[in-house]
Amino acid sequence: MLWRKLLVPLTSLVLVLTASGGAGAAAAPTGSTSEAVAADYGASGPYATAVDVGVVTTLYYPRDIATSGRRHPVIVWGNGTFAFPVVYRDLLLHWASQGFIVAAANTPQSNLGVSMRAGIDLLARRNTDPGSAFHDHVDLEHIGASGHSQGGAAAIVVGADPRIDTILPIQPGPLANIDDVRVPALLLAGQKDSIVFPFLVKAFYDAADHIPAIYGELRGADHFTVVGDPGPFAAPTTAWFRAHLMGDQAARAQFFGTGCGICTDSGTWSDVRRNGLVAQ
């Protein structure tokens, strides 16, 4: 349909201009390499961070990964239309500070998910390379996919890859088919998003009746709230990935069970929906 073809490019110039003020100047989170985790998932984690800018993929990861005593799970990331990883630098570094390796695709047109899959392939090669700092420190058994806008749609596309364990699309554009996804999904919308309207994200949620799926609408958020300082997006995204990729039961309780944390947090969320598979 014509409206589907026109919607994705609407984020292009505005997204880049909005990001230019905050993302470039932000400093990498610092911290010790202790295994202690901040109780507030929106706070920086215990790992100092580093960035490796490649041709196809930019990696955000714990700085001391070469001497780490553990394997670190992976998040692959897709950008919004005409945007690059630096636009989302604060969020990606936040995840790295929590112990994740983030493989961000260096493409402003991520919808097909090709570059996101290439990030997994890159880390697989580095994990087996004795000369790499990543050697034997990449947890390729626990991989999540996320992205914003067009990249959110790409996260859904990549979610069909059997290597992916969960998806977290942020305000995803419409060019994806969630019927092909076979892993749990957290679909995030912004209450005041006038580019990817909440009803478009709800359509993905409604179609995801074959997988555990949650729809979360962040109160007051517009399409560019996640750009630069990720604000209210930092805590729930971190908790979701810690629950599914690290086995963090406290984080899991934010989404599952009768005490579901986000279900009662009306200050942060304007709408939360969980399907029957989540309830089980």
Score class of each variant (00 low, 15 high):
5 K>A: 05
8 V>C: 04
14 V>T: 02
19 A>K: 07
22 G>D: 15
24 G>V: 03
26 A>Q: 10
28 A>P: 07
32 S>W: 01
35 E>H: 11
46 P>F: 07
46 P>C: 07
47 Y>H: 15
48 A>M: 01
49 T>V: 15
52 D>Y: 13
54 G>M: 14
57 T>I: 14
63 R>D: 07
69 G>E: 11
70 R>W: 01
71 R>W: 06
73 P>R: 09
73 P>L: 12
77 W>Q: 06
78 G>F: 00
84 F>M: 12
87 V>F: 04
91 L>A: 13
112 L>M: 08
113 G>V: 11
114 V>S: 10
117 R>W: 00
118 A>R: 10
124 A>P: 00
128 T>Y: 00
132 S>T: 09
133 A>T: 13
139 D>K: 12
145 A>M: 09
149 S>I: 01
152 G>V: 07
158 V>C: 13
158 V>R: 13
160 A>C: 02
166 T>M: 14
169 P>M: 09
171 Q>H: 02
184 P>G: 11
186 L>H: 04
187 L>E: 08
191 Q>D: 12
191 Q>Y: 01
196 V>W: 00
199 F>N: 09
202 K>H: 10
208 A>R: 05
211 I>T: 08
214 I>S: 06
221 A>I: 03
223 H>L: 09
226 V>F: 09
226 V>I: 13
227 V>R: 08
227 V>L: 14
231 G>T: 04
232 P>D: 11
235 A>G: 04
239 A>V: 02
239 A>R: 12
246 M>I: 01
256 F>D: 11
258 T>C: 00
262 I>A: 04
273 R>Q: 15
276 G>E: 14
276 G>H: 09
